[in-house]
């Protein structure tokens, strides 16, 4: 009889050229993985290491020899001898335009990464004039756990994926409508507490623009007291059930201000439940106030 240990598949390496540099990555890797391996920083919005790529934002596009259009690096798997350009005029143009388009219709004031990339590529959202249509959505504050500010939403699908097949399988939200009128919403745009939402906060954790925000962060920002530079992050283990979820406790002034989970840990892959995500108030002796 044999001991049926799990043995990892033998890895096959694939070599491609990125900006003239030879890069070798395991079969099944994406062009983005190859770029990362080559030390090339790539802007991403809808990509998440713990999510299935939806390649909707198109900011990570690269030029692939033989392809008529640019290709999304986050989802395109490497094939032997691909020749990829990440810094050609076409690539720079598309990345700039995607960021510029988003900036022209969405409030990116709290999307630090995107703003840095916009500057890098010279995106100028003002080119579309002051009357350009915007998301124009009010902040939704429906409970004490997190808020939804769709004025900041870039429709990257990450929250939908995290709520759905990629993690939580609750499906409380979906992309709805079409075109520029598309919005993330519950059925009939009902309020969250009446929806299927179970407040795991996994959507908040993946949001790239702070459109979804923990109420703790929102309140501190409202009070002009959100100070990332004064915050530290400590990884520990959740105090509730015995699954052993890793928690990242973000603390400011010796108080927990939000909780995330490492997206590369095999227990959680960045996901938590309502207790792990929000059940920390008692540490500071807070009660639910009723």
């Amino acid at each position: 009889m044999t001991n049926t240990m799990n043995s990892p598949e033998t890895e096959v390496a694939v070599s491609i050229s990125v900006d003239g540099q030879a890069v070798s990555v395991p079969e099944g890797s994406t062009i983005l993985d190859a770029c990362t391996a080559a030390g090339i920083d790539t802007p991403t919005i809808c990509y998440g290491p713990n999510l299935t790529p939806v390649n909707a934002c198109r900011v990570c596009v690269v030029e692939l020899e033989g392809s008529r259009t640019l290709v999304p690096s986050c989802s395109r798997e490497v094939e032997p001898d691909m020749v990829v350009q990440t810094d050609s005029d076409r690539v720079k143009h598309s990345r700039k335009m995607v960021l510029e388009f988003l900036g022209s219709g969405v409030d990116l004031s709290q999307a630090d990464d995107l703003n840095a990339w916009s500057e890098h590529y010279g995106a100028d959202p003002n080119r579309y004039g002051p009357d350009a249509e915007t998301m124009n959505e009010p902040v939704k504050i429906e409970d004490d756990l997190y808020i939804r500010d769709y004025d900041k939403c870039v429709l990257c699908y990450k929250c939908v994926s995290a709520c759905g097949d990629d993690a939580q399988h609750t499906f409380a939200i979906s992309m709805t409508g079409r075109g520029f009128g598309a919005r993330i919403a519950t059925e009939f745009d009902g309020v969250l507490p009446d929806s299927a939402c179970v407040y795991c906060g996994n959507c908040v954790a993946v949001c790239p623009t702070n459109a979804l925000q923990f109420k703790t962060e929102f309140d501190l920002r409202q009070a002009a007291n959100w100070r990332p530079e004064d915050q530290s992050v400590t990884t520990t283990i959740c105090s509730y059930c015995g699954v052993g979820c890793n928690l990242e406790l973000h603390t400011q002034d010796e108080r927990i201000v939000k909780v995330t989970s490492p997206d590369d840990h095999s227990v959680t892959w960045g996901n938590l439940c309502i207790k792990g995500r929000f059940g920390w108030q008692y540490v500071h002796g807070d009660s639910d106030g009723d």
């Binding site: 429906e142 756990l145 507490p193 939402c197 407040y199 309502i274 059940g279 920390w280 639910d288």
Partner: peptide
């Protein structure tokens, strides 16, 4: 412990 936060559900 869990009584410390306002759960909408």
């Amino acid at each position: 412990q869990s009584g410390g936060f306002n759960s909408p559900i």
